[in-house]
Simulated assay, not measured.
Amino acid sequence: MYRARDRVDNEEWVARLTRAADGLDLDTEARSNAVDLFLSNVPDEERSKPAVAAASLYAGALIAGEERSQGSVAAAMDVTRLSVQTRWKELLADSGFRPPEW
């Protein structure tokens, strides 16, 4: 869980997630999931934030049943597909979800 202050401190990243979700045509639930996942797992290092945000968007869409490809999410967030691929399962597990095994 995150504090309200975390949302304020990461307003730029929330805006980036929202813009990427617009580009991917994701609904409100997927967007909310992505923001919650990101804010609950914000890394300390600034350089890690783009990858965590992209993984959060991918995982948030999965949770909402709105699958998007890792490549399309990566492109929307301007990161590599590998950044999404290596982080999304751990992100889900750390947030209390059981990642799929496919």
Rank of each mutant, 00 (worst) to 15 (best):
A30L: 04
A30G: 04
A30S: 11
A30P: 10
R31A: 06
R31N: 05
S32L: 14
S32R: 15
S32W: 14
N33M: 02
A34R: 03
A34P: 09
V35D: 01
V35A: 10
D36K: 11
D36R: 05
D36S: 13
D36W: 01
D36F: 00
D36G: 00
D36N: 14
D36L: 01
L37E: 04
L37M: 05
L37H: 03
L37F: 07
F38I: 06
F38R: 02
F38P: 05
F38C: 09
L39T: 01
L39P: 02
L39H: 04
S40F: 03
S40W: 04
N41F: 01
N41S: 15
N41E: 12
V42D: 01
V42H: 02
P43T: 02
P43Q: 07
P43R: 04
D44H: 10
D44N: 03
D44C: 00
E46S: 11
E46Y: 12
E46P: 00
E46W: 13
E46T: 14
R47N: 07
S48H: 08
S48C: 04
P50E: 02
P50K: 06
A51Y: 05
A51P: 00
V52A: 07
A53R: 01
A54P: 13
A54G: 11
A54T: 09
A54Y: 10
A55F: 09
A55G: 05
A55C: 14
A55Y: 11
S56E: 02
L57A: 03
L57V: 08
L57M: 10
L57Y: 02
Y58F: 15
Y58S: 01
A59H: 07
G60P: 04
G60A: 07
G60Y: 07
G60W: 10
G60L: 08
A61I: 11
A61S: 15
L62Y: 13
I63Q: 14
A64S: 13
G65M: 09
G65H: 12
E66Y: 10
E66I: 04
E67N: 15
R68H: 14
R68C: 10
S69D: 13
S69W: 07
Q70Y: 06
G71Y: 11
G71C: 13
S72N: 13
S72R: 14
A74F: 08
A74L: 03
A74H: 03
A74G: 06
A74M: 05
A76V: 07
A76I: 09
M77E: 09
M77Q: 10
M77V: 12
M77S: 03
M77P: 11
D78W: 00
D78R: 14
D78I: 00
V79S: 11
V79T: 11
V79W: 12
V79L: 09
T80M: 03
T80W: 03
R81V: 12
R81I: 13
R81G: 13
R81S: 13
R81H: 05
R81D: 15
S83D: 15
